[in-house]
Amino acid sequence: MKNLERNKSLDLIKWIALLSMIIDHAWYILPTELQEPFRWMRIVGRLAYPLFCLAIAANVCRQPVGHLGGLNYLGGIFFFALISQQPYSRFFEGNHLNILFTLGLGLVITQAIHHLKPTLIAAGITALAIAVVYRPILSFGLCGALLPAALLAALQARVIETRIVTWSTAALIAVLANTGAGIMLLPDLPARALASISAAALAPLLGLALLQFRLRSIRPVGTWMYPIYPIHMLLLNSLSITWA
């Protein structure tokens, strides 16, 4: 199979996802008295995960059905997920698994749905089972693992009615992944919660709009993005300790 031509719009989406993630994480090291005035950083951060998932879905969607690609991509995700877990646990001081585990499971599920090969279907079912079992400690939970597949369905929709349903479903799953189902049950949501919900819901539509851009040039987001994940957390953690 020939290598697919690089999609510069996808690089733009990855850049926005990467920068919004770093902005989100940087909020945690702000002095306590600055956290509330800079709450907008957390709202910007709600864009990151849906855009990362859209990048995965768009890459899978471009693959000819039956011709599996991205094995190195998948291997890189899980390799750096393992490397990133210790810096992630130190930074967030919890027992959750980092975002790369969720993205890796989501990629396996999405490829299984797209290619429909028996071995991939078995792998997808296994990945889904893992996401169900580990959902309490999986970053963005079960919805996070399902979001790339939901976005794949949205990208593949051709009939306008189907597009509306699939993109609405993807937006809902993005909200549930980012905020959890509990926030949707609150009778009177505060303004910052509404802002977070809106950002998460609009992220897939923002990504769809960005995919329509035809950029002439943009710096590619390559495999260097993997080590950036643990490195930026180590750096932020060091800054937090220094300022403290």
Rank of each mutant, 00 (worst) to 15 (best):
L215V: 03
L205C: 11
L107V: 04
P118T: 08
L4I: 14
H25W: 05
V108L: 13
V60I: 15
A57M: 07
A123N: 06
F140T: 03
L30V: 10
N7D: 15
L120K: 02
E33T: 09
G182W: 08
L186Q: 15
R158A: 10
A112T: 06
R135M: 10
L12W: 01
G75V: 03
N7K: 13
R46V: 12
P227E: 11
G180A: 09
T119D: 10
R192L: 12
Y28N: 03
I218V: 12
Q85P: 01
G182A: 13
C143H: 07
S240C: 11
P190E: 11
H115M: 11
R42Y: 05
L71S: 14
L215G: 09
S20Y: 05
N59I: 00
T102H: 05
V132L: 15
F92C: 04
V159H: 08
A149N: 00
E93T: 09
E33V: 09
P230K: 04
E36A: 13
L105D: 03
N98F: 04
I164S: 07
I113G: 02
G104L: 08
R39Y: 14
A150N: 00
A112F: 01
Y73L: 07
A122M: 12
L176S: 04
A200I: 07
I83D: 03
N72F: 06
I23Y: 00
L236F: 09
H115C: 10
I137N: 11
W40K: 04
I83S: 02
Y73Q: 10
A195G: 10
L205V: 11
T223W: 15
N59M: 11
F79H: 00
